[in-house]
């Protein structure tokens, strides 16, 4: 629990790690939009989905996330698979293009249902992988800086972008400290006879109360001392501050931006123009 960090940053010096966090957020959003395009036929849907999946898999490989972490992040998807299958098999499909899977006394199920469930699963997997690439390759603090940069235009409407970024970075900074506190209080309360793991739900809930209240008190004490310390070190939220970390936009960032935009443009074109590569090649498509 001590090694807990938000989003599981993987310290490694890959080219994805070196990209500007602002660009990484934008590129992630661009690729996420790609995930959600629809195409005219099943072959096209799976071809384009598969292509995108290949691209994202390459990104995952470049980030050097361990295979176990990737599988771990997808662990809870099995529930989704069952849920999707049940929904799509039970709900009749209107405009089917694939043959019948079975016909039990009038209960007709087409292969479309399975194809649809599979497509949604693929989308989910791609979304999860994309966020994994972003959080594994970017320090939470860098994400905060990027977020601050994106919020800067809102200053016109008196939105306190710098303060919000400061709040987020302090929250991130204190996560491990508060986790340590939690463990200490838990041990202290356990030694006084509070049982967090056994007994009825009500009893365990009461146990948690004995954890939450001391934790609340200690975090308030901490926040007051922190506020004093920050004030004494000259922090004034309204005042102008210089920055230690300055984000730099390099040619590699530009390249990544161009490539991800090009990918999105390609997907938009194919989707909007209803292109069917299989028909163009004269193959019988599904």
């Amino acid at each position: 629990m001590k090694a807990f960090t938000l989003g599981r940053y993987v310290p490694y010096n890959s080219w994805i790690h070196r990209l500007d966090p602002r660009l990484k957020i934008l590129a992630t959003i661009l690729l996420m939009v790609c995930v959600f395009f629809n195409f005219p036929t099943w072959s096209m849907r799976y071809l384009m989905g598969g292509l995108l999946f290949a691209v994202i898999s390459i990104l995952v490989a470049c980030t050097k996330i361990s295979f176990r972490d990737v599988i771990g992040s997808l662990r809870h998807l099995w529930f989704m698979v069952i849920f999707l299958l049940i929904i799509y098999v039970l709900v009749p499909n209107g405009n089917h293009t694939l043959p019948e899977a079975w016909n039990l006394n009038g209960w007709v199920v087409y292969w479309d249902s399975f194809a649809e469930a599979g497509r949604i699963l693929l989308r989910l997997v791609m979304m999860i992988e994309l966020t994994l690439v972003l959080t594994a390759s970017t320090k939470p603090l860098d994400l905060t800086y990027a977020l601050e940069w994106y919020l800067t235009p809102l200053k016109v409407f008196h939105f306190p972008a710098a303060e919000v970024a400061m709040i987020i970075s302090i929250a991130l900074r204190f996560i491990p400290t508060l986790l340590e506190d939690t463990q200490r209080v838990m041990k202290a309360q356990s030694s006084r006879g509070v049982d967090f793991e056994h007994g009825s739900l009500w009893k365990r809930l009461m146990g948690v109360t004995s954890l939450v209240i001391p934790l609340f008190v200690s975090s308030f004490v901490r926040s007051e001392e922190l506020a004093n310390a920050m004030e004494c070190r000259g922090y004034d939220p309204q005042a102008k501050r210089t920055r230690y970390h300055v984000l730099h936009f390099h040619w590699l960032d530009l390249l990544a931006l161009v490539l991800s935009s090009a990918l999105l443009a390609g997907y938009i074109t194919v989707s909007v123009m209803n292109l069917d590569f299989f028909a163009m090649l004269g193959w019988a498509a599904l």
């Binding site: 991130l172 900074r173 922190l226 310390a229 920050m230 000259g234 102008k240 210089t242 230690y244």
Partner: peptide, 23 residues
């Protein structure tokens, strides 16, 4: 409770940022 930055360098920088020392 007086460690504001997320790393040692960031924490030393905190006061400098407040007094507007150039980056």
């Amino acid at each position: 409770n007086q460690f504001v930055g997320s790393t040692v360098a960031d924490d030393i920088a905190f006061g400098l940022e407040n007094t507007q020392v150039p980056t």
